[in-house]
Amino acid sequence: MRADRLVALVLLLRQRGRMTAAQLAEELEVSPRTVLRDVEALAVAGVTIEAERGRYGGFTIDPGLRTELTGLTQDEALALLAAGTRHGAGAFGLGSALASAMLKVLDALPPPRREAAAGARRRLLLDPEVDLLSRRVPREDLPDAVVAAVRRAVLDGRRLSLLHAAPGGEPRRRTVDPVGLVTVRDLGYLLALRDGEDRTYRLSRIREATVLDEPARRAADVDLEREWRERSARFRAGDGQLAVRLLLHPRRREELLDTALAVLHEEPGPPQDPERQLLEVTFQDLRHAEWALWQLGTDAVALTPDALRDALRERAAAFAAAYARPRPD
């Protein structure tokens, strides 16, 4: 909305001092021409923004134009700035709202605390785009309109019409009663009821969402943490999953946990292999288990089931055979 953008423009100038139209356009994700129109609109509203021409020119604003939020300590403000990561908010379609809120938090602090918090924030980095090995961290692409509709239905207590596509299936239309939204490792989920039965939907698999006029048929109150814990336990105990026993080097444990559905048992490895751990974990199916263990190389050795060992052995033999052939000139 334009009103939010005008506020953000004022706050940017308050916190950063002189900025060019190009710099403001980049921050606000608009064109420089739109920035110029916004500056004119602020001038009409009585907000004086001075324009300086030339190579080192730009826009500045009266530093006295501000309010103070003296109740926040420096550490409290820093906690808000650090906790508000773009990825977590993005899972609920609140990325732009988060950016605007962070600007307001900074601007509301008294000058010494504002400068200290802004400086400290630059020394804290949460959830970078790549890890230490330059591997890009996957992020879900969530349509703004879909997430906004889902969020509104959850908060307003309205029924929701969804076009949802299960993995490997065709999209199907469903009418649900939304219960709450959960984000886990930057993945967003809608907890809902369908015909009175618990349902959990990945937000990235919802193609369309329409808020209905009917009130949601749900309890007046909810313990969302308990609800998530119970649904997660039921999912891990579901039918059709594959239990795998394996030996694993501890340095790859987190990678395994990122792909396995659940860890059923864990203990030290056998005396003949003391550096490894013995685990029993579950996967969706044989294909899922084969893919996950192949990523871990020789740091993971499947013990059971035999079908998984056979699949990994065949894959390794095919890999070795490809490199046994003479290199083409």
Score class of each variant (00 low, 15 high):
residue 1 M to P: 10
residue 2 R to I: 08
residue 6 L to H: 07
residue 6 L to Q: 02
residue 8 A to Y: 03
residue 10 V to Q: 05
residue 16 R to I: 03
residue 20 T to N: 03
residue 22 A to M: 02
residue 22 A to T: 06
residue 22 A to S: 11
residue 27 E to S: 14
residue 28 L to R: 11
residue 34 T to P: 10
residue 34 T to Q: 15
residue 36 L to D: 12
residue 36 L to S: 13
residue 40 E to V: 15
residue 43 A to D: 15
residue 44 V to N: 15
residue 44 V to K: 14
residue 45 A to R: 15
residue 46 G to I: 01
residue 50 E to I: 12
residue 52 E to A: 15
residue 57 G to A: 09
residue 61 I to S: 05
residue 64 G to P: 05
residue 65 L to P: 01
residue 66 R to L: 07
residue 68 E to T: 12
residue 68 E to Q: 14
residue 69 L to F: 14
residue 69 L to K: 07
residue 70 T to L: 13
residue 70 T to A: 15
residue 72 L to D: 00
residue 73 T to E: 02
residue 74 Q to C: 14
residue 81 L to W: 10
residue 83 A to G: 09
residue 85 T to Y: 15
residue 91 A to M: 06
residue 91 A to G: 15
residue 92 F to G: 08
residue 92 F to D: 02
residue 94 L to G: 11
residue 95 G to E: 10
residue 95 G to C: 10
residue 96 S to F: 13
residue 98 L to S: 13
residue 104 K to S: 13
residue 106 L to A: 12
residue 109 L to F: 08
residue 109 L to Y: 07
residue 109 L to R: 11
residue 109 L to V: 00
residue 111 P to E: 08
residue 111 P to L: 09
residue 112 P to E: 07
residue 112 P to D: 08
residue 115 E to L: 10
residue 116 A to D: 10
residue 120 A to I: 07
residue 120 A to G: 06
residue 121 R to Q: 05
residue 122 R to P: 02
residue 124 L to P: 01
residue 131 D to R: 00
residue 133 L to M: 03
residue 138 P to F: 05
residue 139 R to W: 06
residue 139 R to H: 06
residue 140 E to R: 09
residue 140 E to F: 12
residue 141 D to M: 10
residue 144 D to E: 14
residue 145 A to Q: 07
residue 145 A to W: 04
residue 155 L to M: 04
residue 156 D to I: 00
residue 162 L to W: 08
residue 167 P to M: 00
residue 169 G to E: 09
residue 169 G to M: 07
residue 170 E to F: 05
residue 173 R to D: 02
residue 180 G to F: 01
residue 183 T to D: 05
residue 183 T to I: 05
residue 183 T to G: 03
residue 184 V to N: 04
residue 185 R to I: 00
residue 185 R to S: 04
residue 188 G to S: 06
residue 191 L to S: 02
residue 194 R to N: 04
residue 198 D to E: 06
residue 198 D to V: 03
residue 202 R to Q: 09
residue 204 S to L: 06
residue 212 L to Q: 05
residue 213 D to Q: 12
residue 215 P to I: 01
residue 219 A to S: 15
residue 220 A to S: 06
residue 220 A to Y: 04
residue 222 V to S: 08
residue 225 E to Q: 11
residue 226 R to H: 11
residue 231 R to V: 04
residue 233 A to T: 13
residue 233 A to G: 13
residue 234 R to N: 03
residue 235 F to C: 08
residue 237 A to R: 15
residue 237 A to T: 04
residue 242 L to F: 14
residue 244 V to Y: 13
residue 246 L to A: 11
residue 248 L to T: 02
residue 249 H to S: 07
residue 256 L to G: 08
residue 256 L to N: 06
residue 258 D to L: 14
residue 260 A to W: 13
residue 269 G to H: 12
residue 269 G to W: 08
residue 270 P to W: 08
residue 274 P to Y: 00
residue 282 T to M: 06
residue 284 Q to I: 04
residue 287 R to V: 08
residue 289 A to H: 11
residue 290 E to F: 11
residue 292 A to G: 11
residue 293 L to D: 09
residue 300 A to I: 02
residue 304 T to Q: 11
residue 304 T to L: 12
residue 309 R to L: 02
residue 318 A to F: 12
residue 322 A to N: 09
residue 323 Y to D: 05
residue 325 R to D: 05
residue 326 P to Y: 14
residue 326 P to A: 12
residue 329 D to N: 10
